[in-house]
Amino acid sequence: MSELAGRRAAVAPAKQSLFLVFRIGDERYALQAIDVAEVLPRVPLKPIAKAPAWVAGVFAYRGAVVPVIDLSALTFGRPAQVRTSTRLVLVHYRADETAPAQLLGLILEQATDTLRCHPSQFQPYGLDNRQAPYLGPVREDAQGLLQWVRIADLLDDSVRALLFPAQPLDPALLEERS
């Protein structure tokens, strides 16, 4: 083996990750693609009474009812713009590493691009934003700053209990009450 080939083999390439890039208004954000189950067009949603305004509703997907949140409404208090590029992105949500994954829908504007880069290119931005813990580090490129959205940190305990109750209602119990 030549000396050059030996050096190439000794230096393992940095493991890059794929990210789904989207916008909230004029700002760019990214989800790690490994968290994404499927990207769908917008579909009609059933609203959830008394839920926070950023909980867009639920819909039936392959036999399961999936809750959906509007990330624009969650982050900045205004619903996502209705565009042809606004998508319903299904993600694998886990409250923690030991919990089983559950499907969660996210309404995302302009969710049409991807980026492949090393996760270490995202750097802390110096604020401890306890009101939005899901907003992670940022990456600078020619288009400005891109912020990583961490799926595991999207829901606080009260919203998680609303969208993913520990004990789902038993339809038989509802019939007994009638």
Results as ranks from 00 to 15, higher is better:
T86P: 12
L40A: 03
I34Y: 10
R139F: 03
V43Q: 03
L74N: 00
D170M: 01
S17M: 13
L90T: 02
E176P: 13
A5F: 11
L145Q: 11
L74K: 09
Q81S: 02
P165K: 14
I48R: 05
E140M: 13
E109G: 02
P100R: 12
F59Q: 03
A49N: 03
D141A: 02
I69A: 02
A111Y: 06
G57A: 05
A33Q: 02
L146W: 01
L18M: 11
R8P: 09
A14M: 05
Q123S: 08
K46Q: 14
T114F: 14
A172Y: 15
M1V: 15
L88C: 11
G136W: 02
P52A: 04
K46R: 13
L145N: 10
I24V: 04
F22K: 02
R42G: 04
T114P: 15
V55A: 01
G126Y: 07
D113N: 03
A161E: 15
W148Q: 08
V89N: 00
R42I: 08
P124W: 05
P67R: 10
R87P: 00
L155A: 13
I48L: 07
P47H: 01
P119E: 09
Y29P: 09
E140Y: 12
L18K: 09
L169S: 14
I151C: 14
G144E: 02
P47T: 01
Y125R: 06
L115C: 10
S17T: 08
T112Y: 11
G57Y: 01
G136K: 06
T112L: 12
F59D: 01
L173A: 14
R83W: 11
A142Q: 08
L71T: 09
L71Y: 08
A37P: 10
F76T: 11
Q131P: 05
V11E: 05
L31K: 03
Q102K: 13
P168M: 09
R94D: 05
P100H: 15
D26R: 09
A132W: 15
D96K: 06
G63R: 02
R139A: 08
A56C: 13
D35G: 12
F19P: 07
R139I: 01
L90N: 00
D113S: 03
L45F: 04
T114R: 12
P133L: 07
Q110H: 04
L4G: 00
K50G: 07
D96T: 05
V55S: 03
E140N: 11
D153T: 14
V68L: 00
I48G: 01
Y61L: 04
L162N: 14
P67C: 10
N129T: 08
A73I: 09
V65C: 06
R87S: 00
Q167W: 13
V58P: 06
R28D: 00
V43S: 00
V89T: 07
L146K: 02
V159T: 15
L162G: 12
Y29L: 07
R150S: 08
D70N: 06
P67G: 08
P52N: 13
L115W: 08
D70V: 04
Q81M: 01
R8N: 06
E140Q: 10
D96W: 03
Y29W: 10
L40T: 04
L145R: 03
V138I: 07
A5L: 14
